[in-house]
Amino acid sequence: MTLLDTIPGVARRSAELLLAEVGVDMGCFPSAAHLCKWAGICPGNHESAANDNSDKTPPNYRWLRGMLVQMANAAVRCRTSYFASAYRRLDPRRGHKRAIIAVAHRLLIAVYHMLKQHQSYRDYRASDTGQRSQSQRLKKQQVERLGYQVQLVPLTLLNHRCRA
């Protein structure tokens, strides 16, 4: 329970229900993909020649899938989490429902690895921000060494200027 409480968007009640449905022992699932297939949260893929015929998820365990979708909706509300960034990346292309299913799929993969390795949740997006800003500073210094002047402008200002 304490491991699952570290995930953004997972409350105590949803962690209890998830453990009741899935269990604590992940030894019966060879991989996270097997758990997602069993839970019915994996993306459907039916190809014949070059035609993609279906994107529906399998209809297994609708209670578990509904709970995972609720957890994904809550995880998306935490703006600085990895799940929110994945949702923001997928929503414009795929739509809200498919993006939420994709976030629920990633959430279940994280749960599998946490229960398998007995480690708490680590948000990779939050841990990479310092490295990204450091690499951006290095790139700015490299460009300035070439003799150019660099001024970093926030992305929101650029978007605002393009619309005008």
Rank of each mutant, 00 (worst) to 15 (best):
W63V: 14
L17V: 06
L90I: 01
C28S: 08
T129E: 14
A102T: 03
S54E: 05
T80N: 08
V103G: 01
L18T: 09
V76G: 00
H105N: 15
A86D: 06
P154K: 12
R163Y: 10
K97L: 04
Q149D: 06
M67T: 09
L138T: 08
M26S: 07
R65M: 03
M1G: 06
Q134A: 14
C42H: 06
D123P: 03
Y82L: 07
G9K: 00
S135E: 09
H118G: 10
V153F: 08
A126T: 06
H34G: 01
R137C: 02
L115K: 03
L3A: 07
Q136R: 08
T2R: 14
P92W: 00
L158S: 13
Q136M: 05
V69E: 03
A104E: 02
W38E: 04
L152W: 13
R94W: 01
I41D: 02
K97S: 07
A49V: 06
A39F: 01
A74N: 09
S48A: 02
T2M: 05
L158V: 11
A110I: 03
R163N: 15
D25R: 13
R62I: 05
N51E: 12
M26N: 07
P43R: 04
R89W: 08
E16S: 13
A126F: 05
A20M: 09
I41V: 09
T156L: 15
M114V: 08
A11H: 02
M1R: 12
K116Y: 11
E144N: 10
R62Q: 09
G9N: 00
L157K: 13
N51S: 13
P92M: 00
A33C: 13
Q117P: 07
T2L: 11
G44H: 03
H46F: 12
D123V: 05
W63Y: 15
A74E: 05
D91V: 04
C28T: 11
R98P: 01
T156P: 10
Y112M: 10
Y124M: 10
H96S: 05
T57V: 06
H46P: 01
A72W: 00
G40K: 05
T129F: 04
D128E: 15
N53C: 06
H160R: 15
G95E: 01
G95V: 01
Y121C: 03
D25W: 05
V22W: 00
